[in-house]
């Protein structure tokens, strides 16, 4: 069987998805990145390898997320794609009549506007984390409520509590103030969900035409309280797809399939890479006044990628060498 692997390395979670050639999800993993993407990528692949059926064969790999370049180099990705496009590709595949995608992840949130099957506009949060998952995580910890129960509790709220949502710091002090006035935790949590939604719509969704069908995805889409708050604010149904938390990875896998079929082969390093030693090193280039910090990715002491040189001197030299080696290997 031919399988395609999609990897989404975000700041908070690292997601892995295996799909077959008809884009059915065969297995998925949702791990915490914990600031160590190299470790997360290796752990993810190790778990996938153990889960994979015997006859399965990885014939294409794609990476996305803020760690996509690193992941791409480590696994030998056929395509490295930004998360906006990856999310849109996956959602269009699973919900073909989508017009608006709301995506809320750990550190960032985005809105993608789709008309007639193509992306026509998008935005990502810029300066504030109040509309993201890590903000909810933190408040859940404060209230000593497991984040998984957050949404259910919000739905049990009976009294409206307005919490300022413009800024994470304001929201927190506002919330404490409301708690001290004696509101029930359910009401406070519901107020937080509404504040997050309000902030998202004012900030990320500013100036965008939000039309149904609205699809809500990303880790936070598991929270029924937020989903409900979106439905209230937008006055329409909000649809959460089955694999909402790994949509970026699914998109990367679909794109990997397209690319691998076009090329006729895959660059996937194979699962042996989990035993390789990956390290990031850097040096300051003194070639000119820019003094770029050049980052090098080492795999078992061999340089496999270079970034950060503005003039391209270092990474182009490496690309040239890699191309030459590849030609030699082919000949």
């Amino acid at each position: 069987m031919d399988y395609y692997l999609g990897i989404d390395i975000g700041s908070v979670s690292s997601d892995f998805v295996l799909i077959d050639d008809e884009h059915n999800v065969i297995s998925k993993l949702y791990l915490k990145t914990q600031g160590q993407p190299i470790k997360a990528i290796k752990d993810g692949l190790r778990l996938l390898r153990d889960e994979m059926p015997e006859e399965a064969d990885i014939t294409g790999v794609g990476s996305t997320g803020s760690g996509r370049d690193l992941a791409g180099v480590m696994v030998g990705a056929d395509i490295v794609k930004n998360e906006i496009t990856a999310h849109a590709v996956a959602t269009l595949e699973k919900v073909s009549d989508v017009s608006t995608i709301l995506e809320i992840g750990g550190q960032d949130s985005k809105i993608i506007i789709i008309r007639d099957g193509i992306v026509t506009d998008f935005a990502m949060n810029t300066v504030c984390a109040a509309g993201t998952g890590s903000f909810l995580d933190r408040q859940a910890a404060r209230l000593d409520v497991p984040i998984e129960q957050f949404g259910e509790m919000a739905l049990r709220s009976t009294t409206k509590v307005r919490i300022a949502g413009r800024c994470a710091v304001f929201a927190e002090s506002d919330m404490i103030h409301k708690q001290q006035m004696g509101y029930e935790p359910e009401d406070i949590i519901n107020g937080l969900c509404e504040a997050l939604v309000r902030n998202y719509l004012n900030n990320v969704g500013k100036g965008k035409e939000i039309l149904p069908k609205v699809v809500f995805q990303g880790g936070v889409a598991a929270n029924v309280g937020i989903k409900h708050a979106f439905e209230e604010a937008l006055k329409c149904d909000v649809y959460v797809p089955e694999h909402h938390e790994v949509m970026g990875a699914i998109g990367a896998a679909i794109l990997a399939q397209e690319e691998a079929e076009r090329k006729g082969y895959t660059d996937f390093r194979g699962f042996d890479l989990v035993d390789m030693d990956f390290k990031t090193k850097s040096f300051d280039c003194d070639g000119c006044a820019n003094q770029c910090e050049v980052v090098q990715i080492m795999a078992d002491k061999q340089v496999v990628a270079r970034w950060g040189d503005r003039c391209g001197k270092w990474h182009n030299a490496l690309l040239k060498r890699q191309r030459r080696d590849k030609d030699k290997a082919m000949a």
Binding site: K81, N82, E83, I84, T85, I118, T120, D121, F122, M124
Partner: peptide
Amino acid sequence: EAGYQTRLEAFVDL
């Protein structure tokens, strides 16, 4: 520059 690059790439895709 990661977030910046993401936006540029996505805009070019669009």
